[in-house]
Simulated scan of single mutants.
Amino acid sequence: MSKYAILSDIHGNLFALLEVIEDIKEQNIDSLILLGDLIDYGMQSNEVVEFIEKELSSKIICNIWGNHEKAILTSDFNHFSSERGINSAKFTASKLNDRTKDYLNDNLIHDGKYEFEIEGKNVLALHGSLDNHYWKSIFPDDLNGNYLDYDIVLSGHSHYPHVFHKFYETNNPKMRNKKSVLFINPGSVGQPRNHNPNAQYAILDINYGSVELKSIPYPVNKAMKLYDGSIDEFYQKRLKHGI
């Protein structure tokens, strides 16, 4: 199979995830790469994890912890940038059931980083970046690490989708002394921040070396109605505008 669906930052938003999976099914894609933050911010963390466990496990070739799994499952809330973020994580921690915690502990890679090969390409999957696997993002103008050893770098965390190439200087006259590395951030399924409220993910076609950034409508209002005041209303309202 030459096509791979890349998902990140679902953040407890089952409504968004379901629409993304339906879109993936229509394109006959059987391989999924998950880049972390399945939980928190949204009101359906247990439901998201249960759906992934029951419906998607056989298709997943990469599933790593994000910073929210790291914080919540180790009870380390010191790295969040705001008090409301800490409060949300602690609320989510209080609501996770044992089955969810077991799945996240037993089936996800805890390092926030995973190296693997697909069809001859050396792939690095990160939640954040090489400089900080959990809390520091890759941006086109600030890579936060040296990725010369890889052909493809997949990352999440920022909630901003991107696709770009970085050409490193190497001693390879055949390739004009350049090494091309493809960087992909699929954006966020459940809490986009690029002013587009739709659920977002990416499709990588290895055979053609192409990437499609997808934007899928989902019932945002239904997701918003689940919030009951347990966490700051900011996390509810931002869904409407993708901020």
Rank of each mutant, 00 (worst) to 15 (best):
P197N: 15
N97L: 13
N67C: 03
F80R: 06
Y201I: 10
A5D: 02
M1D: 08
Y201F: 13
P173C: 10
E212C: 11
Q236V: 12
R99W: 06
P219A: 12
N196D: 15
I33P: 03
W65K: 00
F116L: 11
F15L: 07
I29Q: 09
F139S: 09
A93N: 08
L124E: 00
G209S: 00
N194K: 15
P217L: 13
K90E: 14
V20A: 08
C62S: 12
I138M: 03
N46A: 08
I206T: 12
L124Q: 01
F139I: 01
I86G: 08
H79W: 03
K121N: 11
K237R: 14
A89V: 10
A202Q: 05
L73V: 02
S31M: 14
K90H: 11
H159W: 10
Y201N: 10
N63H: 06
L56V: 10
L213V: 10
N196A: 07
V153M: 03
K136Q: 05
L38S: 04
Y235T: 11
H159A: 08
D228M: 06
M224Y: 14
F15E: 13
S155N: 14
N221M: 14
Q44Y: 03
N221S: 15
H159K: 11
N194F: 13
E115W: 00
F51V: 09
S31G: 11
K166N: 08
V20D: 09
E26G: 14
E69S: 12
L18M: 12
K178S: 12
T100S: 13
A71Q: 00
S82Q: 05
N87L: 09
H133K: 00
G112C: 02
E19A: 08
K70G: 00
E119N: 03
Q200S: 15
K121G: 04
D23H: 14
Y235E: 11
D111I: 00
I109H: 02
L38C: 01
